[in-house]
Amino acid sequence: MPHVTTDDGVKLYYEEAGKGLPIVFVHEFAGDWRSWEPQMRHFARFYRCITFSARGFLPSDVPPDPSSYSQDRARDDIRSILDGLGIEKAHIVGLSMGGFATLHFGFTYPERCLSLVIGGCGYGAEPGKREQFAKEASAAADGFEQLGMEKAGASYALGPTRVQFQNNDPRGWTEFRDQLMEHSALGSANTMRGVQRMRPSLYELVEKMRTITAPTLIITGDEDWPCIEPSVLMKREIPTSALSIIPNAGHTINIETPAEFNRQIEMFLHLVDVGSWPARDPRAVSGDILGTK
């Protein structure tokens, strides 16, 4: 199996297709390398596309030590993919957990980014939701360990921002649920505790967001409630960003609404590749409402 090895010795499974400028796809907690199949098939026509399973997600290694899992590790595993494949710079596309990692990668390694797509990013970020999210993340981790993935995974797939997927595309949702139930219970529990529960709030990262220079597309579903206000925050603070909201969509937008997701990203990447993606005009944030002063 093709893999790269991280600086702490974890093997990350990857697949690639196509040629041209590279795109690295970074999956969400409930997904794995397979989650990006609609994007791999579409964008491999024009780009060198790479998808990989995060640590803790088969067939990548599942480290038993919980200390092997953190937001910084998730961020640096993207760098390990680039280094292992000899890629200097890439478009980075992430969803949810992968969106958080993409954001952190963008302000930590700006020299490695052609652009950033931050999708469905915001769970637990709002200041008033931090304690609730931490409790729910701990309970979910306990469930994966105690109940196993078949039962706990099936329940997780019916979360309040997943039912839209089930309603919009029952066949696609069933495939998503079945793949989730194949995940490692240990890897899921360790990831939930070490990455999801412990990551900093987006509201603590405002100063770092302001340093991002790579063209950035923030995208979310309009019924992905935990991500809407954090997406507005990122739009406001990242000076090279645009915000897109997909109608009648939940959290798993890359496979729930793949045609629209792909369309928007293709347009974004085209503008970036031809050098036409703008930074924000400072006059747009003067503080005036009508600009009559």
Rank of each mutant, 00 (worst) to 15 (best):
L103R: 05
T51R: 10
I81L: 10
S115C: 14
S35M: 13
P59V: 10
S60A: 14
P64H: 15
Y69G: 01
L82P: 05
A152C: 00
P59A: 13
D65T: 12
D83G: 04
I50Q: 03
E37I: 08
A134E: 05
G84W: 07
E37S: 10
I118P: 04
C113T: 13
P64G: 12
R48V: 07
L58D: 04
E88P: 03
A139F: 02
H91C: 00
H104D: 14
G99Q: 02
E88T: 07
E111P: 11
S67F: 10
M40V: 15
G124A: 09
P63T: 12
W36C: 02
Y47N: 12
Q71M: 15
R79E: 13
R55I: 08
D65Y: 13
L85H: 02
D72T: 15
G124P: 03
D142M: 01
G106C: 10
R48E: 12
K151P: 00
G56K: 06
K129A: 09
I87Y: 01
L103I: 12
A54K: 11
A44C: 13
I92D: 01
P38R: 01
S155R: 13
D142V: 00
V117E: 09
Q39L: 09
G153Q: 00
Y47D: 02
G120L: 06
G124V: 03
A44R: 10
Y109F: 15
G98A: 02
S155V: 12
Q132I: 05
R75I: 07
M40S: 09
F107Y: 15
S155I: 13
A152R: 01
A101T: 04
I78M: 09
A141W: 00
A157V: 04
A74V: 08
D77R: 08
I78V: 14
E88H: 04
F46W: 10
S67N: 14
D77F: 08
L103N: 07
K89Q: 09
H42N: 09
R112K: 15
G153T: 01
D72M: 15
L58P: 06
D83S: 07
A134K: 11
Q71F: 14
G84E: 06
K135V: 00
Y47E: 04
R75W: 06
A54Q: 13
A54R: 13
Y47A: 02
A157W: 02
T51I: 08
Q71A: 15
K151N: 01
E88I: 05
G86L: 07
E111N: 15
Y109T: 06
F52H: 10
L85R: 06
E111D: 15
C121D: 10
C49W: 01
S68N: 14
P63S: 08
C49D: 04
E37L: 11
